[in-house]
Structures are given as C-alpha cells and as structure tokens.
Amino acid sequence: MTAKVTLAMFGSSLVSAYWNGAATYYRGMIRALDRCGFDVTFYEPDAFDRQQHRDMPDPSWAKVVIYPATPDGLQSVLEQARDADIVVKASGVGVFDEELEAEVPRLRRASNLTVFWDVDAPATLQRMRADASDPFRSRVPNYDLVLTYGGGPPVVDEYSNFGARRCVPIYNALDPTTHHPVQPDPRFSGALGFLGNRLPDREARVREFFLKPAALLRDKKFLLGGSGWDRNVALTDNVDYVGHVYTRDHNAFNCSTLAVLNINRDSMAQVGYSPPTRVFEAAGAGACLICDAWQGLEQFLEPGKEVVRVESGEDVAAILPALTPGEARRMGERARRHLLSEHTYEHRAIEVKKLLVEQLSRRAVPARYDEEVHRAAL
C-alpha cells in the first residue's frame, strides 16, 4: 500500500495521562503507526477532568478530536469515523463504552475493518465471565479482529471461546524517544520508588510489595507516586508521597531511586503475559527494576540479570539492603539494551501493520456482514 491507511480510534485519552494508565501505550503505538504509514485520528471524550490535566499538546503524528461526553457528541464522532479504513474501539474509554462497543461494528463495510483493542483484557474477560448478561459477550464476534494489550495464550483462548474471529496480543513496549536515562532529580531520591494510581485490584499488592518492606526498612526512604494514596492509607514516616507525577517527570522519577518497583494488578498477575507500561518506562530509563512475579516475565526480561523478580514484600526487604548502586546500574543498563533490541514500539507497529494490511487485503473482496451475529447483539 502506498497511500496512508486511515485509522479512527476511540480511546480514553491520548493527551492526558490523568487517571489514564493506557496513555503511554496509546502514545507509543500511535506514534510508531504514524511512522509506518497510518493516518490516525484519536477520538476522546471530555471527561474525568483529563483535559484540565493535559500533559502534552496535540501531537504532529495524530489528529486528536475531543468530543463532549454527551449522546449527541458521541453520534457526531461516530459519523466522522465512518469513512476510515480501520475503526478501533479501545476498552476503558470511561463514558459510553457499551454504546461504542455496539456502534463501532455497525460502521463495518465491505472494504474496512472494525477492531476491538483491549487495553485491560484480564479485567474485560473477568467481567464477561462473571455476568452472562453482559452485552459485550454477544458483540465480540462482530469485530473483525481483537487486539490486546497483553495476556498471551490464556487471553487468546478465552477471547476465542467468546467467539472472536481472531485475537492477537500486542504487548507494551519501549518508546526510546520518550523514556530514556536522564540525570537524577533530588525530588525523587530514595531507595525504592513505585509509581501507580490507587486502584481496588492493585491496592493489596501495593501494601504487600511496597508498604510492608517500607515498614521493615525504616532507615531507607521509599518514594510513592500516583493518584489516590493520600486518603485513608497509613504510610510510615519513611514513605515520601509525591502525588500525581506528570509524564514529563517519569524519567526523572525512574532515574533517581536506587531501584524502581513494578506491581501488577491482581487480574494481570493471575493471567500473566501482561507487562504494564511501567516496566518499559523504568527499564527504558535504565532503572534497576524489581518486579512482582507473573508468568511470562522472562519473555521480556531475564530474571536475575535484567530484572529482580520477587514473590513477597519480605523478598523486597531482603534484596534492597544488599543492592549496590553499581549492580543496580548494570542491571538497568542490561534491561535497557535488551528492550531496545527487541521490544520497542517500532517492533510492535511493524507487527500491527502486517496484521492489519493482511486483514484489509482480505476485505478488499466484498464481504457480507454477518447479519445473524449482528441481530444477536441487538
């Protein structure tokens, strides 16, 4: 294909990371897709004060359309997206998710593709398993393709069982233009840093892997960043809570502590094969990464050489006193080199381009919309 492929994507936000953990993934993927020949328009609702907490201007590599979080606003952007070669509904938009899940497949024509891009597949699948009346169960087969932020074979199998025509994991990755080593910043100095918003299915693991070792190592400074930890959380006096950390400060945060802790949410840890953006952000900045154990970690980083894998808060408390600055730097640099060689968004975009162009070429021959599946979703 010589002309640019047009891609319309409905997601939470591209320009604000405020209560929006998928922002790094969106930015890395869409910037790389632009370089691969895609013309991307990103539709995001004006909701949850995200526009008041923007951390980037509209980018040159995507058109951003911010629409009112109203039924009329939604219908307007659906109409705008109708002519795109590829129309993507991402999970977790935050408003009108159910309506978008139903309406995006109805934009399907003989020569375009509709895609559901799940940025939290373990949670989506858990929701569908728990509720037989969840309308998305019958809508999964309406999409030409399901892409997932992670999840590996377990997620592919489950989506297939729900009738997905095809499901392919597109993992998080490193965007080296955004995440890279910088000089340490005294604001973020300490022995261990953790950056993550307070969420119900993450909190217990934060207490285990971060707050417990902080209580056991009272002579060491721990740094906690992210929204929501200032309400009804007992922090020991050696924990410095810095609140929401804007993306412009992520490199400094990751480069200023002896080590950086990654803590997966419960659902992602249980399914495995779901490295969060924080893994790539921290390792891309050359940080020494301590990661809670989950299946498939070794697919991205080598435990013991490029990442420290821990099973409990006691493990974290035992490792930190023995970790020297020299060994921390060496481990972080090994991880950074590995990601640059195999796990950048350029690698992911090449994979996505091949997949989408292949699917589009099949659709170039007029195809009949599956009316039976469509009626089942109504």
Rank of each mutant, 00 (worst) to 15 (best):
V308I: 15
S160G: 15
Q75G: 08
E44L: 10
T6R: 14
G326R: 15
T178N: 03
A364D: 13
A376W: 11
K4V: 04
D315S: 09
G37A: 11
D201Y: 14
Y345H: 09
V140W: 03
V65I: 13
L14G: 10
E44K: 02
Y345K: 02
G152D: 01
K353Y: 04
A214S: 05
Y171T: 14
F136M: 15
F10N: 05
G37H: 07
R108M: 11
H53K: 13
W117T: 01
Y26G: 06
N238S: 02
A62W: 02
T247R: 15
I263M: 12
G304M: 12
S361N: 14
V206R: 04
G21T: 10
T177L: 13
L360P: 02
A123C: 07
S138V: 14
Y67L: 11
A123W: 11
R330T: 13
D230R: 07
T24A: 15
N254C: 14
L355N: 06
V357N: 02
S267E: 13
R54S: 10
V87H: 04
G284S: 12
R54N: 09
T70H: 07
L320D: 06
E311L: 09
A318H: 11
E103G: 00
A164C: 09
D249A: 10
K89V: 07
T257S: 05
R54Q: 14
S267T: 15
A234G: 08
Q51R: 15
V206E: 05
T236A: 14
R348M: 08
M56F: 06
C255H: 04
M9Q: 09
L224G: 11
Y345P: 01
